[in-house]
Design a protein around this nucleic acid. Structure first.
Lengths: 199, 199
DNA sequence: CGTGCGGTTGATGATCATCAATTTTGGTGG
DNA sequence: CCACCAAAATTGATGATCATCAACCGCACG
């Protein structure tokens, strides 16, 4: 959709589908730096070139605003700016959570963390509680997961198989994930205790 | 200074000195998620408990505001909120840059990246250009560097020695770092080309 | 003069990356 | 509906990088 360095004269909000933000090094090493799920915002008022690649990983519908009018609206309606600040601070928290994952978690914990996050977001969309049994479609290929987690796709595949062997998750086809017991998955993720204030 | 979970009824801006933001897991694994240098802002309007540990790593002077009056001021003076949004977006970019480092860079590249960043910030404080020869005092112990980079302190020490052996940096005592050729250091960091829009 | 902290260096090992088949899956056209 | 194909995923063998465990150095400070 957008390549790093492109001119980008709009901001947008995801309505349905999934997109990713990625950074790459010259030699091709890739790191995902954001996962855009429904309700997430993308783009930055006050900057006209994209610093990241934006890629749709499923069919995607976004609600776009031309940047100029949007900026004008921000000035005239302070509430919008406040809301945007709040969302940006949440994103910053999420990014920092992710730094802990990238820097300090084992491969198994990384996978479990990613699955918990997607499961939680999925559950909150469908207004179901995040306890007990859950299932959902993974919106990411193994490669995308690897790029998110700072692993290789082979390691992702192996750890998914290991979690399945250990009964933490079930797999149906490539994409469908079944979580028989969300608390056990959470334990594998290594996050502290209750996760009360996490998204 | 502040422990994760503490009540925090102020926001602040660093005047002089260096502080760090860290997250920890129950078993003690620690990841630094922010490095606060002079001019950086800390605290979040609209939240009253700190999600991270804040630690001073040098003598530190901060300019603090009680949160309540600050929030009131934000409402009455839209410009402050706008400025804060801008700063938060910059921090988000920095966090994402750091995610690439944590997920995909080698130990050597990580060290070189950290040294470049500190050197650049140092140079901009002192109004010197960031080319050619530079030197500065590292405001971090090996352990703090390790926590920042997602490495162990032993690996940090070894890679510092390796960079010294290769003539990329010089060391004087424990803290003083001499950079004979900033461009060579930059090459070791693995960032793309010119770094034009990086901080 | 000991003691503790920060740092360096060495030996060894675990984890994860890499290279290389092979299998599964979902889609497409006959 | 089935056969075929390419992309995605799995699995195995091997190796590099970095973590771990441990010893030791130098310096500041009581």
């Amino acid at each position: 959709m957008v390549w790093s360095g492109d001119r980008m004269d709009f901001v947008a909000s995801v309505v349905t589908g999934v997109a990713t933000l990625t950074q790459t090094m010259e030699d091709g090493r890739t790191q995902m730096v954001g996962l855009l799920l429904p309700s997430d915002f993308v783009g930055r008022p006050g900057r006209d070139h994209a610093p990241y690649n934006v890629t749709a990983t499923t069919d995607l519908m976004m609600c776009c605003f031309r940047k100029k009018p949007f900026e004008a609206m921000m000035l005239s309606t302070p509430h919008i700016g406040q809301r945007l600040l709040e969302m940006t601070l949440d994103e910053l928290d999420a990014a920092r959570e992710w730094m802990l994952l990238l820097g300090r978690k084992t491969a198994r914990e990384k996978i479990a963390s990613l699955l918990s996050i997607v499961a939680r977001r999925e559950a909150s969309l469908n207004l179901r509680g995040s306890r007990g049994k859950m299932d959902f479609d993974l919106p990411l290929t193994r490669e995308a997961m690897a790029d998110y987690l700072g692993l290789t796709l082979e390691t992702v595949s192996r750890q998914m198989s290991a979690l399945k062997r250990d009964g933490i998750i079930g797999l149906e086809g490539k994409r469908r994930v079944i979580i028989p017991d969300f608390d056990r998955l959470q334990d594998e993720a290594g996050d502290d205790t209750d996760g009360g204030y996490l998204v």
